[in-house]
Design a protein around this nucleic acid. Sequence first.
DNA 1: GTTTTAATTAAACGATTGTTTAATTTTGTG
DNA 2: CACAAAATTAAACAATCGTTTAATTAAAAC
Lengths: 210, 210
Amino acid sequence: MNYNDKQLQIIDTAEGLFADKGFDGTSVRDIAEVAGINVAMISYYFGSKEKLMEALFEIKIERIKDRLESLLKDETLTPFQKVNIMIDEQIERMWSGQRFYKIMLCEQLIDTNPSITRKVSELKLRNAELVNKIVKDGQEKGVFKKEVDVVLMLNTMIGTSWQTLVSQDYYKNFSAEDMSLTDDAYKEQMKTKLSNHVKTLFKIILSYEA
Amino acid sequence: MNYNDKQLQIIDTAEGLFADKGFDGTSVRDIAEVAGINVAMISYYFGSKEKLMEALFEIKIERIKDRLESLLKDETLTPFQKVNIMIDEQIERMWSGQRFYKIMLCEQLIDTNPSITRKVSELKLRNAELVNKIVKDGQEKGVFKKEVDVVLMLNTMIGTSWQTLVSQDYYKNFSAEDMSLTDDAYKEQMKTKLSNHVKTLFKIILSYEA
DNA sequence: GTTTTAATTAAACGATTGTTTAATTTTGTG
DNA sequence: CACAAAATTAAACAATCGTTTAATTAAAAC
């Protein structure tokens, strides 16, 4: 499906509101007002509020799909390099696209729209299979250990990253850290720490114990 | 606040519906119908739908609070034992109380009710401080290493557990596992695997490298 | 320039939302 | 039993929901 500029602008507006107030908490009039358009345009372009949501998922998931694909093919990278790059890209994707990730997580929890459930399910399985290939490759090359639970490993990457992103505000005042940091600098520091943390965990999960 | 049987029954019904359809996706008439009461009873007992939600959080969070408290005090346990028990209890709590955890996570994401946001925030900070005490104790006793990022560690525990719980259906057919398992047996197996996984990660995070 | 198509609008639609009212029934108390 | 308090009810409330209609404007095609 192809969308024109106006449609993309509506989708973008909807993304922001869905992330802030949830799908059911956002009215089509909210979207229309923020986007500066007439309410009827939403039905006109998308058919319904549900289908507007589906269009959002279609676009975003398509974009996510493409990125991981190319990583697997790269022959110049070692399995460990691939895994580390995957971690960094995952974190980067979550931070920059946190509005959509919020919506996606909510949708996984609530689970009302079958079309979206299917899209998310396919994406997750696909990712797991791609990572499984990397792991299998590493095992054959003798750098990864034999028994690796790929699903649990991915759950650690995604879960830890997500948990860190969602609750970073809660813990801002927890650690007696350098308070002179700006908000942006704080976030960047958090991302770096998280990246190293997950990489360390993955090294343990994947490589032979000392 | 104390609630009578009827109020508790309404709260319990609401919990189920909120978990399935979300707060905004659930109408007071839905709740009334499932609970087998008149719609007006919700306003009569709780004042509003929002306050019904707050009552749910009040009850549930109170219960969660109490459990962790006693663990810290136990003098007969080593720091490592405490951590491992914490992991198992956390997983057990998530699995048995997944309806509420769903709602709580959604509420963290959407963040509209200040009263609830405060309650959740307090709970999280409290937990982090309790765990921090355990870690400090272990460091003083020389069994935990010096540099431990407690927040990241907790994010790994909660994030990994939650991610596993939420997406266990997606991956049911992923691993070429023993298919003869019943659903309940599968879930129990999943919990055991998860528990061992997180414990392994924590051992790495907390103890000196070899 | 005229015709056709697409875009945009305000208004109305019926359904559903959370809450309140006022009447009635049930329960507890003396 | 009589009285007061609590519980429960059906009905009504105004507000908002997503969507549709029918009319109008803008753009594209011939």
